[in-house]
């Protein structure tokens, strides 16, 4: 999604308002939970649906 929007991680973190370290935790899939507010703001910044950034792997 980031590639699609041609946005860097730094830009995303700045616009969403989360730190780079938290973003990398999210990206690596280490996060245990995500707040709805965070999800909302990421979706707003990237102009997408939660399904576009979340995927379920067996």
């Amino acid at each position: 999604m980031l590639a699609k929007r041609k946005m860097s991680l730094t830009e995303l973190s700045e616009r969403v308002g989360i730190t780079m370290s938290n973003l990398s935790i999210l990206k690596k899939g280490k996060a245990k939970a995500i707040r709805f507010s965070t999800l909302e703001s990421i979706c707003r910044v990237l102009d997408c649906q939660p399904a576009d950034i979340l995927e379920y792997k067996d």
């Binding site: 989360i18 938290n22 935790i25 280490k30 996060a31 245990k32 939970a33 995500i34 707040r35 965070t38």
Partner: peptide
């Protein structure tokens, strides 16, 4: 606390 830290 760990869970809280990993909630973003």
């Amino acid at each position: 606390k760990e869970e809280n830290n990993l909630t973003i």
